[in-house]
Design a protein around this nucleic acid. Structure first.
Length: 198
DNA sequence: CCTCAGATGGACT
DNA sequence: GTCCATCTGAGGC
């Protein structure tokens, strides 16, 4: 049988490398008998207990951050601002709390199903503004793909949610910048740990 | 195009 | 009680 998803090894590497390698990859979600596919266009790396922007800074272990201490390939999801979910992919070895935040994507297939999840409307009824902002943010991407806290702690090695092992197009230009909305992170706020493509 | 207030609830001190 | 790894809609330009 053909292997659909990236193996554990892919996620056990350096978090910055994984964060970059995920740009252009396809995130696949099978839900209610439908397949949703989103090309990843934006990621951010959160690197270990020294990273002041990370939930696991200074080795913080709580109910929420427990998932970050799992091994690479684990799904870490949390609620932000009381209303939105953020999808993260745990990287590196167990007990080294690192993760990549999936910050944005571009729909590839399952567009009609995603449109209903996102706006409760068919895609043809969306305004140009809604189409442009379909999944260009972590909360928007989760909404469009039906990703909620129930996936927290699960692995990316099942049809429920995984990263396709298909290679991205080889001519993607990947840019970097500081991470978004982490003004509290001291010297870590200027690290170029956000990766994205136009 | 832009800015900004408000929503909303769990994690944490 | 305060802080968020955010988004929307209203209003201004």
């Amino acid at each position: 049988m053909k292997v659909l998803w990236e193996p554990k090894k892919f996620y056990m590497e350096d978090t910055l490398d994984v964060s970059r390698a995920l740009i252009g990859k396809k995130l696949v979600r099978n839900i209610d008998g439908k397949q949703l596919v989103m090309e990843i266009t934006e990621t951010e790396a959160y690197c270990g207990i020294e990273d002041k922007a990370s939930h696991a800074y200074n080795g913080r272990r709580t109910e929420r951050t427990r998932t970050m201490y799992e091994e690479g390939g684990t799904i870490y999801i949390y609620l932000i601002y009381g209303m939105y979910f953020c999808l993260n992919i745990v990287t590196e070895e167990k007990d080294n709390p690192c993760a990549v935040l999936i910050r944005g994507g571009r729909p590839v297939s399952g567009l009609e199903e995603m449109s209903v999840l996102r706006y409760n409307k068919p895609y043809s009824e969306l305004t140009p503004y809604q189409k442009k902002n379909f999944a260009n943010g972590p909360g928007k991407l989760c909404k469009a793909m039906g990703i909620t806290k129930e996936l927290n702690g699960k692995k990316l090695f099942s049809k429920e949610l995984y990263i396709s092992s298909d290679a991205p197009e080889n001519d993607i230009l990947i840019e970097t910048s500081p991470r978004v909305n982490i003004d509290y992170a001291g010297e870590y706020k200027d690290k170029l740990w956000r990766f994205f493509r136009k």
